[in-house]
């Protein structure tokens, strides 16, 4: 294991002990500018859904995994999720950094760091994440990971319930971001900026007008045929009140056959639910654990990274696939990631 920054498997060892201890801060990175909405996220919080606790976590967990692998971290290490840019970090020691996500303008000093490349930063270096040309979010991995306390099995920030991450909130100007330990060889092998990278659709999945693949939801038949046709054919535009809970969509109204209440059931990121007004909501990582609106469809896991890039004004379409195809695509990507992991270890050894 190359990194100490891994999640404990046993929930009883979590949270409280570390959260309350007044540990002296180790090495930190200084948040000079926090940006629009930047938070500490890992691959998400699991095991507490029965108590109403959301997944949280990177809205594109795959992007964070790739970024972590690039800097030699365990793929579950915590990184930063940056929404709409504006972040400026100053480093206090030598680290490797990499990011994946939307088409952001990222600079270390005067050098540009493209998505999916690894760079070595030195003490005093500043990393700036500017605006995105396309897309909404990116994930920054730093060797050693972000070392905020593990709360309920995860370092992810729960922005609705205000726990996890750095003091349960988004970053603020002037924050000291605790960084974890890493092995010196992890950074020593890093070039100033690497010439190699991962596949483009992994490191930069944002599209201006994407089509997201879906499988039918349990309540598909609550809608009549012409509504379902409209759902499959029309483009929807992304509303400005979208957030980490969900992407709110506008376009044709999806009216149900009858408005009787449905009994609440578990919902998950990727679920597209349709409230009485007929405007669908595509749920993301901070979504509630149970919901009672009809579920028309579910966006497949490998497309959640594209969904996480949707921002106000973007247009999106939905394409139906079979559950078998969803699995085929997911398994293929995992196999490709395994090859990428092996390739990386050859690259850095």
């Amino acid at each position: 294991m190359r990194n100490a920054n891994v999640m404990p498997r046993d929930p009883s060892t979590s949270a409280s002990a570390r959260a309350t201890a007044d540990e002296p801060l180790g090495i930190t990175a200084v948040v000079e500018r926090a940006g629009f909405q930047t938070s500490v996220q890992d691959l998400g919080r699991t095991g507490f859904r029965q108590f109403g606790v959301s997944t949280s976590g990177a809205l594109d967990p795959f992007a964070l995994r790739v970024a972590n692998l690039l800097v030699g971290n365990d793929e579950s290490a915590a990184g930063l999720e940056i929404t709409l840019g504006g972040l400026q970090l100053r480093f206090e020691d030598e680290r490797s950094v990499a990011w994946c996500g939307g088409e952001f303008d990222v600079q270390i000093g005067s050098r540009a760091l493209p998505a999916g490349h690894v760079a070595r930063v030195h003490r005093g270096n500043e990393l700036k994440i500017g605006r995105a040309e396309i897309g909404c979010r990116c994930w920054l991995a730093i060797s050693g990971g972000i070392d905020t306390p593990v709360v309920l099995n995860s370092r992810s920030t729960d922005l609705r319930a205000n726990f996890g991450g750095l003091h349960g909130r988004t970053l603020r100007d002037g924050d000291q971001l605790p960084l974890g330990e890493f092995q010196a060889s992890q950074v020593a092998a890093t070039e100033d900026i690497s010439s190699w990278t991962g596949p483009h659709d992994w490191v930069s999945p944002a599209q201006r007008h994407p089509a997201l693949h879906f499988i039918r939801g349990a309540d598909w038949h609550c809608f009549n045929d012409s509504t379902l046709q409209r759902f499959k054919i029309n483009e929807f535009s992304v509303s400005s009140d979208s957030d980490r809970m969900g992407v709110r969509l506008e376009g044709v109204e999806l009216k149900r056959n009858d408005e009787a209440d449905l009994i609440s059931q578990g919902v998950a990121p990727g679920t597209i639910q349709v409230p009485p007004g007929g405007k669908p909501i595509l749920l993301l990582g901070d979504c509630q654990t149970i919901g009672g609106y009809p579920k028309i469809a579910h966006v497949i896991t490998i497309d959640l990274g594209i969904a996480a890039q949707l921002r106000a004004g973007d247009r999106v379409r939905f394409l139906e696939v079979s559950l078998q195809d969803a699995y085929r695509l997911l398994i293929q990507r995992e196999r490709d990631l395994e090859r990428f992991r092996i390739g990386l270890s050859l690259q850095t050894s």
Binding site: T46, G47, R49, Q265, G266, Y327, L330
Partner: peptide, 27 residues
């Protein structure tokens, strides 16, 4: 990975890759 009971149902959340590794075929 985890379960969520609610009124008439239990939602089961899983990692398809891990299910596959425990046996069976992708489809």
């Amino acid at each position: 990975i985890e379960l969520a009971p609610a009124y008439t149902s239990v939602a089961v959340f899983f990692d398809p890759v891990a299910v596959l590794k425990s046996g069976g075929a992708a489809h």
